[in-house]
C-alpha cells in the first residue's frame, strides 16, 4: 500500500512540480501571479487531442502542440502582458489580468471542444507492471521519467549555466540586471518560450494521465500555486520540492480521508502556509526584512 502511495506521489508530484516550476519562473521574472498558467498548460493537451483526431502521427502531434503553445505564449505576451508591463501596471491589475486570462482560456476551450471529457489515445499499448501488490502503467512510468528529467535539466540550467545566472539576476533585481547590459525584453521572450514548453509538457502529460476537461486548468493552477507557496514562491527549486510534497500529502491523505477531499487538502495546506509560513519552507528573509 505504501509503495503504491509513493508511486502515485511521484506521478502527481512530478506533474505538480513541473507546472509549479513554470509558474514560479513566470511569477519571479514577470512579477505577477500567473493564474492563467494551468489553463494555458491544458491547452497543449487539447492541441494533442486535436492533432490526434485528425490522424496526425502521435510524435508530430506532440511537436506541433509544443510549437502551438509556444506561439500562443508569445502572442499572449505581445498583445497583453507586454502592454501592461510598459504601462507599469500595479500588482492588483496584474492579478486580475492573470485570473481573467485563465477564465478566458478555459472558456475558449469550452467553446471549441465542449464540456465533455476528452481522452488522448496512445499509439502504443499502455501495459501495466505489477510488483509488491502495487501497479504502474507504462504511461505513468513515462510521466515520472519525463517530469523528473525535465526538472533536473531545468535545475542545472538555472543554477549551473551563465544563462541561468542571468535569469536569477533578473529575478533578484531587474533594473540592475538591465544596467549591467541584460536586454530584459529579450530574456522575457526566452523565458516565455521556456515556460510555454514546460506548460506544454505538463499539459500533455496531465491530459494523458488524467484525461482532459476545460476546467482542469484551474485545478492545476491551484496545485502549482500551492506547490510554489510550500517551497517559497521566490525560490525556484522550492516549487519543485513543494510539488512533490503536495503530491505525497494528497496521495497519503486518501488512506485516511475520502478521496473526494483530495483537493480540499490542497487548500488547507495553502491556507496553513499562507498564515504560518508565507515565505515557504525555503524562502529566506532578506537582511532588510529581518531588521524590520
Amino acid at each position: 500500500m505504501i509503495l503504491q502511495v509513493i508511486i502515485n506521489s511521484f506521478i502527481t508530484g512530478g506533474l505538480y512540480a513541473l507546472i509549479a516550476l513554470g509558474f514560479s519562473l513566470l511569477y519571479n521574472t514577470f512579477k505577477f501571479i500567473p493564474f492563467f498558467y494551468g489553463a494555458f498548460a491544458i491547452f497543449a493537451g487539447y492541441f494533442l487531442y486535436l492533432f490526434n483526431s485528425i490522424n496526425l502521427p502521435f510524435s508530430l502531434g506532440i511537436i506541433l502542440s509544443f510549437l502551438v503553445l509556444i506561439i500562443l505564449g508569445l502572442l499572449i505576451d505581445f498583445f497583453l502582458l507586454r502592454k501592461f508591463r510598459e504601462r507599469k501596471a500595479g500588482s492588483v491589475i496584474m492579478l486580475i489580468l492573470g485570473l481573467a486570462l485563465g477564465i478566458f482560456l478555459e472558456n475558449l476551450l469550452l467553446a471549441i471542444f465542449g464540456p465533455n471529457i476528452k481522452s488522448i489515445s496512445l499509439p502504443f499499448e499502455n501495459i501495466t507492471f505489477n510488483f509488491f501488490n502495487s501497479s504502474l502503467t507504462l504511461i505513468q512510468l513515462i510521466v515520472i521519467f519525463i517530469s523528473l528529467s525535465f526538472l533536473v535539466i531545468t535545475f542545472f540550467s538555472i543554477y549551473k549555466s551563465r544563462y541561468g545566472l542571468v535569469i536569477r539576476s533578473l529575478i533578484s533585481n531587474p533594473l540592475m540586471a538591465e544596467i549591467l547590459g541584460v536586454n530584459k525584453e529579450d530574456i522575457f521572450r526566452k523565458i516565455l518560450i521556456f515556460t510555454s514548453l514546460i506548460a506544454a509538457i505538463g499539459g500533455i502529460l496531465y491530459g494523458i494521465e488524467y484525461n482532459l476537461e476545460p476546467t482542469a486548468g484551474t485545478n492545476l493552477t491551484i496545485k502549482a500555486f500551492t506547490s510554489a507557496i510550500i517551497g517559497g514562491l521566490e525560490f525556484l527549486p522550492g516549487s519543485i520540492f513543494g510539488g512533490f510534497l503536495l503530491g505525497f500529502i494528497e496521495n497519503i491523505s486518501v488512506l485516511f480521508l475520502p478521496s473526494a477531499f483530495k483537493d480540499g487538502i490542497t487548500f488547507i495546506i495553502l491556507f496553513l502556509f499562507l498564515i504560518f509560513k508565507p515565505k515557504g519552507m525555503f524562502g529566506k528573509k532578506t537582511r532588510e526584512e529581518m531588521s524590520g
Partner: peptide
C-alpha cells in the same frame, strides 16, 4: 544581487 554569490555578482558585472 543579494541571493547570488559574490562571484556570481562579479560575473553579472
Amino acid at each position: 544581487f543579494p541571493n547570488l554569490t559574490v562571484e556570481e555578482n562579479l560575473l553579472m558585472g
